[in-house]
Design a binder for these strands. Structure first.
Lengths: 158, 158
DNA sequence: ATGATACCGGACTGATTTAGTCCTGTATAG
DNA sequence: CTATACAGGACTAAATCAGTCCGGTATCAT
């Protein structure tokens, strides 16, 4: 449920790879494909999308490649996901445009959608690429009832 | 992105409908279909799934219908979503079972997935059916930078 | 210059998933 | 005993997704 597409996964991996290699200035699609063990064609496609969303910068030619457009701490996971899956459009109802819905007023979905949307956006906005890049410990803390406490133990979040 | 399926939306609506009608003890699929303006066949299907997940109880026969299995405040949105979309399975990697992934150790996806998963789960677990049922005000608060602060202004969350 | 490298942009296809329908069976109330 | 309403499946059409491929353009090294 609420699953990200495979390509989005790959995208996160690629961004992580780029973020981790701080020494080399530019990473080629070929390099990243090898590193992430993904097919080159797929990697290229993803890098293009990430580029168009302004998360990467590129340089052509023999010594070309990709580089992060911003500091990893300034890139949220939400942005990366949006870059690949398109802007969050849960339903037509969730846009700001009014009058589209045939149910007019009293549509019971609208507020629900927005509540949930807002909640998820909020979380994903807080997690940055930097959080993903550093192999941080994920320690699932469980409370007395055995339920997972939604705290991420990296120290950055909450 | 990170979108819920339409059916999940409908499911949330149906649960909300049931939660809101506190007077009537049992709601039939037919009633709910009329109320939610969704086709009966779809509504039936969803109610069945919600039933099997233990979120609803049912009664057959002439005066039959559905009723919430628990207090709306005890039912999280996460449960409702999981009931319809199946248990959160972002990728095979995100299950607890090890050894499935061909990349063996050092798979860079795994931790990412779990971080994001955990974050989303955490949020959805906190939002309850009660939150959806009461037409609460959604006031998107923006901070100085124009970014949305992920606070939901119902007073219940955060 | 010129050729090799690597990004750029889009079209295209097969597979998977999703939404939605339909039908037959079983329990309950009157 | 009959109408009502849930129970449990199977089934299909449509939409989405993953992945591939190709012709084009910019850049660097020789």
């Amino acid at each position: 449920m609420v699953r990200l597409g495979k390509l989005t996964d790959y995208g996160l991996v690629l961004m992580t790879c780029i973020a981790r290699a701080e020494g080399t200035p530019l990473r080629t699609a070929r390099d990243l494909a090898r590193e992430s063990r993904l097919p080159l064609s797929t990697v290229s496609k993803l890098l293009k999308e990430l580029l168009q969303s302004g998360l990467l910068m590129s340089h052509r030619g023999t010594k070309g490649g990709y580089i992060l457009a911003r500091d990893p701490r300034q890139i949220s996971v939400l942005e990366i996901i949006a870059a690949i899956e398109g802007p969050m459009a849960l339903t037509e109802c969730s846009t700001d445009v009014t009058g589209l819905c045939s149910l007019e007023s009293g549509c019971p979905i609208k507020s629900n959608q927005q509540i949930i949307n807002q909640a998820i956006r909020g979380v994903l906005e807080k997690v940055t690429l930097s959080d993903l890049a550093h192999p941080l410990q994920l320690t699932p803390i469980r409370d007395a009832h055995g339920r997972i406490v939604p705290t991420i133990a990296s120290g950055r979040i909450q």
